[in-house]
């Protein structure tokens, strides 16, 4: 090694150590398993990989999952932001209770969420019969999958937007009002841009969660190929059916897409943060 001292100061050493430690932790916990998955998917060669992806069932499942995940991101961005507004700006009896209820989807194993939905909307329940009679059956149909995903993704946007909104200086909104802006203009021109990073990160989390969700939909989807079989159900079937490479290939697509979405949203967020 060189004659120079290894570190300029002990602070440098600490920085280096902590950075090293967190990076290796990330490596062991996250990157290694992902690399293993990538290896598994590509080991038999790219031909097998692309063959797996050209299977119409796999393609449909991926398409369904992406559509649903995108829908969850959009719906949650809108409803989650609205819910956060209610929680931040309105006082009503039971608000504290509501505030705690919001996190429940985090606490309940998602498969239990599926079970609850089957109990509520299932074929033998009053709600289920009512819905079916009106031509909108939920359970074992795509709308049911969407409802299950709504349940498991419900808290993400609320919980990322709410604290930011609480910290927001109301003076900006007041300034907009004194300048002649109405509520909507104020919201879209002043408030929303300030909340945008939080909304985006919440929506990104909801998207990823919806994309990978398995437990919540395994009971309600019906798992019918080319109909209600999502990518996660397809992957599960492939694993159980000893088609590991097919499972890995589809998973890699899910991962890559999720990663891309997170990257895009992160860069959008960073742009917004620079203004502070």
């Amino acid at each position: 090694m060189s004659q120079k001292p290894a570190f300029k100061s002990s602070a440098d050493a600490v920085t280096l150590l902590t950075r090293g430690a967190s990076l290796s932790y990330l490596g062991v916990v996250l990157l290694l398993p992902l690399a293993a998955l990538g290896f598994e998917a590509l080991r038999p060669g790219p031909r097998v990989f692309f063959e797996a992806l050209s299977d119409p069932l796999a393609r449909y499942a991926l398409g369904l999952s992406f559509t649903l995940a995108l829908a969850m991101a959009v719906v949650n961005a809108v409803i989650g932001t609205a819910t956060a507004w209610v929680l931040v700006h309105r006082d009503f009896p039971g608000k504290a209770l509501m505030n705690s209820l919001i996190d429940l989807p985090f606490a309940v194993p998602t498969v239990v969420a599926g079970l609850m939905l089957v109990a509520l909307y299932g074929p033998s329940s009053t709600m289920g019969l009512l819905l079916e009679r009106n031509g909108v059956p939920l359970i074992y149909h795509r709308p049911g999958v969407a409802v299950a995903l709504l349940f498991v993704t419900y808290p993400f946007v609320i919980r990322s937007v709410q604290p930011v909104w609480l910290e927001l200086d109301p003076a900006e909104e007041e300034a907009a009002a004194t300048l002649g802006a109405n509520h909507w203009t104020t919201f879209f021109a002043v408030t929303l841009p300030a909340l945008r990073p939080a909304v985006l990160s919440g929506a990104a989390l909801a998207f990823s969660r919806a994309l990978g969700e398995f437990g919540g939909i395994s009971l309600v989807a019906g798992n019918r190929p080319l109909d209600t079989q999502t990518a996660s159900l397809y992957v599960y079937g492939a694993i159980e059916g000893d088609r590991t490479q097919v499972a890995a290939a589809v998973s890699i697509v899910l991962l890559a897409a999720s990663f891309a979405v997170l990257l895009i949203l992160n860069s959008l967020q960073n742009n917004a943060v620079k203004l502070d």
Binding site: V118, P123, G128, S218, G222, N223, Y236
Partner: peptide, 16 residues
Amino acid sequence: TFESSSRLSLAAFARG
């Protein structure tokens, strides 16, 4: 519905 095991298929049937 295609359930993931025999047991689950019977459970779904029993649920209606």
